[in-house]
Nucleic acid binder design. Structure first.
Lengths: 183, 183
DNA sequence: ACGCACATGTAATCAGTTACATGATTCT
DNA sequence: AGAATCATGTAACTGATTACATGTGCGT
């Protein structure tokens, strides 16, 4: 199974590993992340929760605070934690899009400090390749009339460079932290 | 129709407005843009082309260079250019994701220098809001144990700030260009 | 009384990927 | 001879959005 990509269901499980939540809570949290992980609707969240429940990776507790208003709090099970640990240690296909990078970043950041380095390095490679492709394209375009293409390429180069700076910072930070742990 | 978002079909039409291409050519070009607009497959490109053809927004010419190898070159029609002009002048819903921003950037950059300012300003607003949300979240998280969330937020803040710098640069550049045109 | 935020869920639909099917040309 | 690239297309599937359906609690 070399090269599996985590999906939304895994991600939801990862969030529940951090703290028990209801579907509504998950929605709120994801909204607060802005467009980093998109803006998943209830039509995506509830089915994900039901799927996890079916596989016994989470358990539900129906809470009726005060009177009649029901909330369903989902809590990760031992099997769920095991499944998460398995996914996180598996090699992940360097998914090209920001969304899956961030989802994995959250999962791995919480669960596996060692895996973090690999994940960041993998992302680094993806961004470096992307930047190289854009630089090539910039040359090919030359100073033609297609302003749109040139703007898009410049946009891509700017964001790619900013991301690389951040990635290098984080990689340095993580490596010093791991060194500290070793002592 | 306030708030329509351009889709992939519109985008393909926009590319054909720049130069006539085959489906394969479009694929190659989009590939060279890396993950800026995703990595659309032929299963997306050819149906898009067929849809445009059905609406007479493009025309085909089957070219048999050398011998037997066929290529279908798609060329935008007058109706197609009209449709594009309509879409571009319509107010676009500030789509949250990079993909639709870049697609619109290419279209608008090529077709409407005036619309560019609006598009960039709209994007600016989206990014500013996004950054504000992330800053709020950073405060709420505090220095808890959830390293993943904190990393994601920092990542989002870094990329958002880089994007804002670029947007401001571009806005300044576009405005001086428009001034130059006015004289 | 009315509307808004809270809260859960399902069904229709849609956009796009994956996988398949086909065949020519060029490189090694 | 075989692989890689060029080149077009369709059908099944998937992941997610949109729209719908339902109901409570709180503020004005």
């Amino acid at each position: 199974m070399a090269g599996m990509t985590i999906n939304f269901v895994h991600f939801v499980l990862g969030l529940l590993a951090d703290r028990s939540m209801s579907g509504y809570d998950i929605r709120c949290f994801l909204k607060s992340l802005g467009w980093l992980v998109g803006n998943p609707s209830f039509g995506a969240i509830y089915p994900a929760l039901h799927a996890l429940l079916k596989d016994d990776l989470v358990s539900v507790e129906t809470v009726s605070e005060s009177d009649k208003r029901i909330r369903k709090i989902y809590t990760i099970t031992d099997a769920g934690r095991q499944a998460l640990a398995d996914w996180v240690t598996q090699p992940v296909k360097p998914g090209s899009n920001v969304k899956s990078f961030v989802m994995q970043l959250i999962l791995i950041g919480n669960l596996s400090p060692q895996g973090l380095t690999t994940h960041l390095e993998q992302r680094r490679q993806v961004v470096v390749d992307h930047r190289a492709a854009l630089e090539q394209l910039a040359q090919d375009l030359g100073q033609g009339v297609n302003r749109g293409q040139r703007l898009a390429v410049e946009y891509g180069l700017t964001t790619a460079n900013a991301e690389l700076v951040w990635l290098d910072e984080m990689l340095a930070q993580v490596s010093t932290e791991l060194d500290a742990d070793r002592i």
